[in-house]
Each structure stands twice: as C-alpha cells, then as structure tokens.
Amino acid sequence: MSTGNMNLTLKVWRQKNNNTKGALVDYKLAGISPDMSFLEMFDVLNEDLITKGEEPVVFDHDCREGICGMCSMFINGRPHGPKDLVTTCQLHMRSFKDGDTIVVEPWRAAAFPVVKDLTVDRSAFDRVIAAGGFISVNTGNAQDANSLPIPKMQADAAFEAAACIGCGACVATCKNASAMLFVSAKISQLALLPQGQPERYRRVQSMVAQMDAEGFGNCTNTGACEAECPKGISLENIARMNRDFASAKFVSEETI
C-alpha cells in the first residue's frame, strides 16, 4: 500500500496498561513515503501488525491537522519530534532519512499516567481549567460585544496565549515535568482581557493550587517548554503568572 522507499527502524514503547511495566519494542518498516505524516507511518505499522495477528500500537490522535492537541508522541527525545512549531500529526516523514532509527515514547510525567502504549491520561489539565480557567458569565448575561473596546495589542497578546492546544508537550519536555506553561497561558489569556479582571486574583490562586495538587514538577526556567511548544506559547506567560500570583498572595486581600 505504501508508495515510498524509506526503510526505518522504530523503537516503540509498548505497555499494556497502567498496572504493567512497559518496554521499547523494535519494528522494521519498509516502503515509507516521505509525504506521509508521522501518524500515517504509524497507520502503516499498525496495518502490518494487524495483518500479522499482533496487537496494533495504541496512540492518541484525532484531528490530524495540528489543532485538537490529542496527538502526543515523544520522538527521539523531543515532544512532537524534531521540527519546531508542529504537532506529531503535522510532522512528515521527509523530516527523517532513509535508514533512521526512531525512538517513540509516551509523554512521561507522574501527572500523566500511561493508559496504554503511547496513550496517556491528561485529565489533570481539565481539572486545572475547572479550578478557575474561565470567566464566570452565565449564558444570557453578556453585554454588547463592542461595548468593551480592547486595545489591539492586548487582544492579540491574549489570543497568542489562547492558542495553546493543551497537548502537554510542555510537561513532556520539561525536565521537571512542570505544567507552568500550560497553566500560565490560560491565566494570561484571561488576565490580559478586561473581562477577566474581576476574577483575576482568585483565578491564579485556585489554578496554581490545582496544578500543584496534580503532582506536576516545578519550573526552573530552562525554557524547554517554550522551545518545544507546537503553538509557540511564550515564557512571558509564566512571568505574568508569577507576578499575578505574588499580587494575589501578598497584595490582594482575597485569599482562597
């Protein structure tokens, strides 16, 4: 079925479930086309495995256009592989060479337990958002959208923070498995907008508390998260979160 002529050796993490130990397993693949996406290469592998009567590799993926944030492979030591600013699904085989050996592992963090093979549980992110990553406005409460002008620069900055797809590459790559880039992006988006002001200091406190409770590591400012983020979320968001957290804890009178 394949049309190309690349030969590859894959070392893929196989793990039955969260209660069993996993290991890297070797697979040989031939006839891979450079136009395939990385996940399409995995489709070929799985088709092979199914035909041979073996269990296919389980991995998360959905939109395959780089926006849903579901795909999550740690490829040759980097989340989403060797190219900057792309997700695994948008990585194409032309980024590899014939004869390459590619090691593929799941995101690794205590807060992201492995579910099976390359699939991990990222529900910790949802719980962090549920703790405060919103503006409390019930449907029907809104005023006219243009009654609140927002300086373009601020609106753009909020948008850039909001571009986060929640894939977890930041956690995966951080040597401390810290989630601060993800958390700070949401905090920043809302802190930059006038709509987000009423809950600004509550939000940063409750979201950080939840982040800590989930067992993520601490930020040591290596900058790896920013470098690996497929959406280019900036470290400045973490600085903003730190600033807001200090204001919330040491200046604001509201404690939660």
């Binding site: 030591g77 690794r108 205590a110 401390n176 290596t222 790896a224």
Partner: peptide
C-alpha cells in the same frame, strides 16, 4: 526531590540540548 517525583519513569532518549542550555538544566 519534588521534580524527580514528578517524573518517576524517565525517558529512554531525552534530547535536552535541542531546546535548552545545558547549564540551565
């Protein structure tokens, strides 16, 4: 210690130099 606990299972391959300075790590 906390950071080690946050990643109990380490990577087989970890290419830190691709995204950060060695001294910051």
């Amino acid at each position: 210690i906390q950071n080690k606990k946050a990643r109990p299972q380490t990577y087989a391959v970890y290419n830190g130099s691709a995204n950060s300075k060695w001294y910051s790590r």
